[in-house]
Design a protein around this nucleic acid. Sequence first.
DNA 1: CGCTGATTTGACAAGGTTCAAGCGAAGTGG
DNA 2: CCACTTCGCTTGAACCTTGTCAAATCAGCG
Lengths: 245, 245
Amino acid sequence: MSLQLIARQSVKQAAAAPIEDSRTLSSLFCRQPVERIAPGSAVFWEGDAAKNVFEVVRGTLRVYRILSDGRRLILGFIGPGELLGVSLRGQYLYTVEAVTPVEVRGLPRHRFESLSEREPQLKEQLFSRLCDEMAAAQEQMVLLSRRSAEEKLAGFFLLMARGQAQSRRTLIELPMTRLDIADYVGMTIETVSRTITKLAGCGVIAAVGRHSIALLNMNALVALAGGELEDASFHQVHGRRRSIA
Amino acid sequence: MSLQLIARQSVKQAAAAPIEDSRTLSSLFCRQPVERIAPGSAVFWEGDAAKNVFEVVRGTLRVYRILSDGRRLILGFIGPGELLGVSLRGQYLYTVEAVTPVEVRGLPRHRFESLSEREPQLKEQLFSRLCDEMAAAQEQMVLLSRRSAEEKLAGFFLLMARGQAQSRRTLIELPMTRLDIADYVGMTIETVSRTITKLAGCGVIAAVGRHSIALLNMNALVALAGGELEDASFHQVHGRRRSIA
DNA sequence: CGCTGATTTGACAAGGTTCAAGCGAAGTGG
DNA sequence: CCACTTCGCTTGAACCTTGTCAAATCAGCG
């Protein structure tokens, strides 16, 4: 039985907790050579021996598992600054594939471990990232448990916005395909497409090409998503409305 | 924004990795007084200051969050041996309520932290539990992403069986209500009920009173669940088995 | 024995999946 | 540089599952 983790570091998180220690997790990787990975290629596969830990330098990746009936469950999308393959035991638990052209730096696991063992602050940072990942996992559960397609997609867009928004940016990138989105939120590709069309029809969002959308009515989007994806700009209480035309 | 964790220790895990260190996480709690909690009462609420860490001695609890639209998302059920409220920051992220009569031992968080700080093995154990919890979270995502009600419930039953099966016991306890189950797998109570009736009609399971069911046809159940909840009796592709016993 | 709350069951409608076809953009080869 | 192919995306229509509303049953308890 193997376990490993995607260590996440949300943008917000990073900003909120500036690093005082000179020695950061990232510093472990900065001398490692960069590996380039083409879209559609994997960094590693579910079941592989977990030999390396990676830090994402550039690009977006999808993390997924294939269920026994052939369906693909995307556990998350990760980007620059995040760690991949932090593992407690021997095997990777999921497959990680490049969505866009990707650059990563790899570090042999045993070195990663001995280094982080040596310095408590690193261990602490690792722990902290683990917590972030846990929180992210819970958010995804919330997302998956949402009933309607609109709620799910609204939640997904907010998640993506949160991940890349400098502030209240309205244009967000969706490097992944509709199929990726569908496998992430647990719907079919058709429903994703239809729902995007519908939201665009309501004026809540606007599709800008295939790989980005504009968030036109943030309030409506947050209301639709149920307000659960806490955003800095949003702070309401339990009495909430959800109108979408 | 606060983060904390339910640290899980699966039955299997405990058996597979015998403790060599004299000092275990549990040993931190064994001198603390036992608190009794009546069914329906909470150990703590989402948003409370995370003052204590708890170890469950007896009983079953539900861990949940209330979404802003009033829906309740049950993140998991936990039992004896598991930790509650391990927190990196100040507040509990979810509410924990007793399903059955429960006994827990509480330990002030700062003491828990300073103690585990002092001993690396404890930190290690904590890390390990965290990984278990992460794995559990992923399993729930798999469960939630399943399409049909039958798949979800079959998966749920297997999960429950795995959590309490001494061996290939076929009678499993379901201390929680149908509503709890519904909020866990993301369906309505009616659908849960209908689906149980249906599975019983197929001879796959049999309802024994309201709070336990007999697993009559394990193979059918595993097939229904998609075989993803790896069980000793089941190991396909990736060639790894994991004894349950 | 008569409450109260939990569960089951029924009928119906909404919404999502499925199957099928049309559209469009990106990339290839001439 | 353009036509062609391909793949991803959108759209349509029928079907099916699940959510909803409502009512009947059941279990536990005073």
